[in-house]
């Protein structure tokens, strides 16, 4: 009869469960690994799964992984430490892939390593290892995109302390939140923030990152007026003469567009690129015309050739200042 693994879906919990099964020599085919992230709604809703400070989790898991691997090695064909480290590094990410079979795949690989295939992690063309590699790549990319595409909006600023609370709504392809929580905590330590995703939430209170496995659906967070400046920047930093929509979409796939403020203006930018670029090509000035423009810009526009910069009064702007810019 199949045994059901009891764990919360985190890498640390999977590794603990794996250690137990291996010690009892449970065959990979005898275990049913549920997917706690795909659970029935309501089972763990709102339950606090892990409330330890993020760095502590990391230290603790590393230590436990090392001790577990030592006990596992006993009495089985020698599996090198480097091989353990390699598979654990992979598992740390693969555990957060959106594939229900991920836990059983990882267990099977570890089982095979212990049962006559200690070099399995070097067989990059083995079917199981290829799946592990591929899923690892997918989660790695997804985590990287989470670091890139999470967009915070200012929700609240404490009038007394000045402490700012930001929130973001992000829709990843996998479950990368636990892999990027430390990054956000380190980068935005001075702020308070919450990242909502459809499957889990991470919250930083200034001390700890707390993860909640709860389903949420947020269609709109409140407006943030800095966003309009961001859109201005985004539409002016791109060169319409080099339009390359394919390259843009390869790196910024459409499913992320719903949570990216700049995606709203993308269609307009693409559409107007051709006319903006041909407008550039229309203006060709002869050197004589350009010299005239240059001369006008220098103070005392009567001169026909630009004076050398050194000859000018260095305390004053050498060109006629724009009236609006006088006091900036």
């Amino acid at each position: 009869m199949k045994q059901t693994a009891q764990f919360d879906g985190t890498f640390e919990a999977w590794w603990r469960a794996t250690g137990d099964f291996l010690r009892r020599r449970t065959q990979p085919t005898d275990i049913y690994w549920p997917d706690p992230f795909q659970k029935e709604k309501g089972l763990f809703d709102g339950a606090q799964i892990s409330a330890q400070p993020a760095p502590a989790i990391r230290r603790e898991s590393r230590q436990s992984a090392a001790t577990t691997s030592r006990t596992l090695v006993k009495g089985s064909p020698l599996v090198a430490d480097t091989a353990w480290r390699r598979i654990l590094a992979l598992a740390r990410r693969v555990c957060y892939a959106r594939y229900p079979e991920r836990f059983s795949l990882l267990y099977r690989v570890v089982w095979r390593m212990q049962h006559g295939e200690p070099h399995l992690t070097d067989l990059l063309t083995d079917a199981d290892m290829r799946a592990v590699q591929q899923w690892d790549g997918a989660v790695r990319r997804d985590a990287h995109k989470a670091k890139a595409f999470v967009r915070f909006k200012l929700m609240h600023c404490d009038p007394i302390t000045g402490l700012e609370h930001f929130a973001a709504w992000h829709c990843p392809s996998h479950y990368p939140l636990r892999l990027v929580g430390d990054f956000f905590a380190d980068r935005f330590a001075t702020m308070r923030w919450t990242i909502f995703t459809p499957d889990e939430t991470a919250n930083w209170d200034g001390q700890h990152v707390v993860y909640l496995q709860n389903r949420s659906q947020i269609n709109k967070l409140q407006e943030d007026n800095i966003e309009s400046l961001w859109l201005t920047y985004y539409s002016h930093i791109f060169n319409p003469a080099r339009l390359n929509v394919k390259a843009m979409q390869r790196e910024m796939p459409k499913h992320h567009w719903q949570t990216l403020p700049e995606a709203k203006i993308l269609p307009d930018l693409i559409q107007s690129a051709a006319s903006r670029s041909s407008a550039m090509q229309g203006h060709i000035d002869s050197p004589a015309a350009l010299r005239k423009i240059a001369a006008r810009r220098y103070r005392g526009g009567a001169e026909t050739t630009p004076a050398s910069p050194a000859a000018m009064d260095t305390n004053q702007t050498p060109f006629t200042p724009h009236p609006e810019l006088e006091n900036t």
Binding site: Y234, N239, L243, V245, A247, M248
Partner: peptide
């Protein structure tokens, strides 16, 4: 980290 990509494919 490339936070966004403009329509010219640049980060």
């Amino acid at each position: 980290i490339c936070h966004s990509y403009t329509p010219d494919g640049r980060c």
